[in-house]
Nucleic acid binder design. Structure first.
Lengths: 209, 209, 209, 209
DNA sequence: CGGTAATCGAGACGGTACGTCACGTCTTAAA
DNA sequence: TTTAAGACGTGACGTACCGTCTCGATTACCG
C-alpha cells in the first residue's frame, strides 16, 4: 500500500531488531517542522533532515530510497482525510469536496508543505506517478462518481461532459493555490464556485450568444 | 527588462573584449536541447550545461547569478507570444487565449520545458516571483480586461465575480496540464470550455434563474 | 593467558547458556580463510567476518573488544610451535631456530597471514605490545639464552656483543621476509646464515669445531 | 617519476588553472605533523587530513588516488638523501650507509612517520611495490654494488654470497627498528656492525685481524 | 521439570568516513 | 576584458562499517 516504509520483501516473521516507529515519526515530523519554518525545499538535504531528527542518515535511507521518495510520504502524511459526503445532491457533495480543499489551503502546515513539495514533485516523474496514483486519481474518481450519479438521476443535463465539468469545478481552487497563492480563501468560496459553475453565467436578457 | 544578461553597471562604451552573443544563444539552446531530450531538471548541473554548450562555467556565472536565474530566461525564451485578440466578443477573445495555451501544450519543446521548469520554480520563491511578474500576472491582466469589457457592454451578468469567472475559464486548462497531463488536448477544446462555462449547466428541465 | 576470550570477571560456575567453542573456531578459521584467499587486511571488516562465519556481530564483540584484538588471536593461532632445540652447540641450536622460521615462511597459511597481520600490527601500539610480549620477546629470550651458553662454555669469543650477534643471526631472515619477499628460501639457508655469521666469531684459541 | 602528483596524461601546455604547489606541501606537511603528534595511523582519515591542511577533500583526491597512495609520498618526503659514499673501502662505504639509516632512526620526524607508515604499507601490495621499487630496491642496489667492487678488488673473499652478506649487514639495523624499537642507537653502532660482520669474511690471504 | 539467565542469529540504531560530484570563486594563457 | 579550462574550499550525496542495542529463539544449569 505504502510507497516506502516496507521491508524489502519478506513474509518471514521479522528477524532482527524491528524498525522503530518513533524514528519514523520523528523524521516525518522533522521534515514538516523544517518546511513550516520556511526552509526552502532545496535546502532540505538528507543530511540536514537527519541532523534535525537526531537520526543517522542510514536510518532514513533504510526506509526511503530517495529524497523525493521521502517527500511523497511527507506529503501523504499532510493530506487531509477524504471528507464524508452528505450525498444529498451533486451540489452539496461538491461543496463538501471543495471545502475540504479550501480548509487544507488555510492550514499553515498543509499549505506550506504542499505548495513546496507538490511543485517539486512534478519534476520527478517517478514520484509524481506515485502521488498521482495514491492521491490525485482517487480524489478525481470520487468527484466523477458524484457527477455520474447526478447525471443519472437528472440533476445534470444529459449532454454534459463529465471530465470537463469536473475540471471546471476543481480548476478555480487549483488556480488559486498555484497561480494566485495570495488570493484569500474566504468562507463560502466553495459554495460560490459550485453554484456559479452549476448555474450558468449568461445574463438572463441574452438568451443566444 | 531582462532578469539577467546585463553587464554589472556601466555606461562606458564597453572596454575589453565584448561578450559573445553566440555564447549566450549556445547556452540557452543547450539547456532547451537537454530538457527536450528528457534530461530530468534535477540532473541539469551548471557544470553539465557548460560542458554541453562548450563553454566555461565562469561564462555562465557572468550572465546569470544562479541556476534558477538562468532557468527563468530559458522559460521566457520558450513562452509563446501573447496572441492577437480578435476583440469581437468575450467568447471569441477567450477562445483565442485558451487556444494559445492549448497549442503551447502540444509543442514538444515548450511542453517538455514548461512542465519541468514551471514545477521546479514553485519551490524557489525568488524565481517564482520573477516568473509570476513577467508571465503569469500580465496574462491574467489581459484576461481580466477582456472580462471587464464584457461586463461593461452587457455580455456578462452584472453580478459576476470577475476573478472567479476567470479562474473557471482558465482552470480546466491548468487542471489538464498539471493533474491530467495524459488527457488529450483536442482541437476545439478551447471553444468547448469557454462555451460551457459561459452557457450554464443546469438541466433544461429546470428553467428557473 | 589469552588476551581476550575471557568472560567479564566471574568465578561463579557460569550461569546461562555457555559460549559455543564451535563459534569461536568458526570465527578464527573464517578470518584465516579470508586472509589465505588474498583478501587485503584492510578489507576485513567485522561485518564481513561475521557474515563469512555465519555469526552475529555481537558474538564477535562479546569475545574480542576490537578488530585488532581479534587479529592478535588469529596471529597466535598461526604461529608455529617453538622448536625443540638439540642443545649440541650454538650452531646447531640456531640452525634449528632459523629453520623453523624458514619453514614458517614457506607455509602458505602462516605466510599469508603473518605478512599481512604482522605489518598491520605495527601501526597499533597496543596490539604490537601484546604480540611482542607473547611472541617476539620470548623467542628472542630463547635465542639469547643459546648465545649466552655458547659464551660461557667457550664456543664464542669473550668480547662478543650478544645482542648484536643475535641481530646478525636473525636479521637476514627478517630482511628476506620483509624486504625481499620474492627471494627463495632454499633448503640449507639457515645453515648458510649461521655458519657465515659464526665464522669470524669463534674464539681464536679454538681452531676446530 | 613520481607515483602521484602527475596530471592525468597530457603534454599539452597545461590548460586551466595550474595546481598549487603550496597546497601540495601543506598536505604532506599536515600528515607529517599529525604523525609526529602521535596520531595513530588508523585515525588518519582523508577527511581529517583535509581539515588539518585547510584543504578540500577533492584537492587531495585530485593528486592521490588513495590514502595509501598519499602515504607513499609522505614516506618518500621523509626519506633521507642517499649519502655520499667515500669510496675508500667496502668497510667505510657500508659504515656510511648504515650511519645514514641510524641517523634516520634518531630523527623524531622520520622515525615516527616511518615506523607507522612503513608497517601499514606492507598490508597494501600495490603500495608496497611502489615503495619497494622507488626506495628499497635502489638502496639495495647501491649496497650490492659496493660489495661487488669489494669482491673484485680482493677486499672480500671470493666465495662470499653477496646477497647474504648484504642481508647480514643490513639486518641488524632492521631488527632494531622493527623488533626492538626501544633499543638505543648508540654512536658507533654502524661501525660495530660492519666490523663484526666483515671480520670473518676477509680473504684468507690477508692475515691481518 | 520448569524457570532463569546468558547465548545465538539477525538486523536496526546514531555515528563517522568513504570517494564522487556539483557548487560558486579563483587563476591561468590565449584571443 | 572575455574566453575555455580547470583548480580551489565547501558541502551533500549514497554506501559501508563502526560498536551498541534490541528482537525472538536457543541452550544450559539450578532449584
Amino acid at each position: 500500500m505504502s510507497l516506502a516504509e516496507s521491508r524489502p520483501q519478506q513474509d518471514c516473521p521479522a528477524r532482527g531488531r524491528p524498525r522503530s516507529e518513533a524514528v519514523e515519526r520523528a523524521i516525518l515530523e522533522g521534515v514538516m517542522k523544517l518546511l513550516e519554518d520556511g526552509v526552502p525545499l532545496a535546502d532540505l538535504s538528507i543530511e540536514r533532515i537527519a541532523r534535525t531528527a537526531g537520526v543517522g542518515k542510514a536510518t532514513i535511507y533504510r526506509r526511503w530510497s530517495d529524497k523525493e521518495d521521502l517527500f511523497v510520504d511527507v506529503l501523504r502524511a499532510a493530506e487531509p482525510e477524504d471528507p464524508e459526503l452528505p450525498g444529498t445532491s451533486v451540489r452539496d457533495d461538491f461543496v463538501m469536496l471543495l471545502e475540504s480543499q479550501r480548509r487544507r489551503g488555510l492550514a499553515t502546515r498543509s499549505s506550506a508543505i504542499l505548495h513546496n513539495v507538490y511543485a517539486q514533485m512534478k519534476s520527478s516523474p517517478k514520484i509524481w506517478a506515485a502521488y498521482h496514483a495514491t492521491v490525485v486519481a482517487p480524489r478525481r474518481r470520487i468527484g466523477r462518481e458524484v457527477l455520474r450519479r447526478g447525471l443519472e438521476n437528472g440533476e445534470l443535463r444529459r449532454d454534459v461532459d463529465i471530465d470537463l465539468l469536473h475540471d471546471m469545478l476543481v480548476g478555480p481552487m487549483l488556480v488559486r493555490s498555484l497561480l494566485r497563492p495570495d488570493a484569500p480563501l474566504e468562507e463560502g468560496l466553495a459554495e460560490q464556485i459550485v453554484d456559479t459553475v452549476l448555474e450558468g453565467l449568461r445574463p438572463v436578457s441574452s438568451p443566444g450568444a
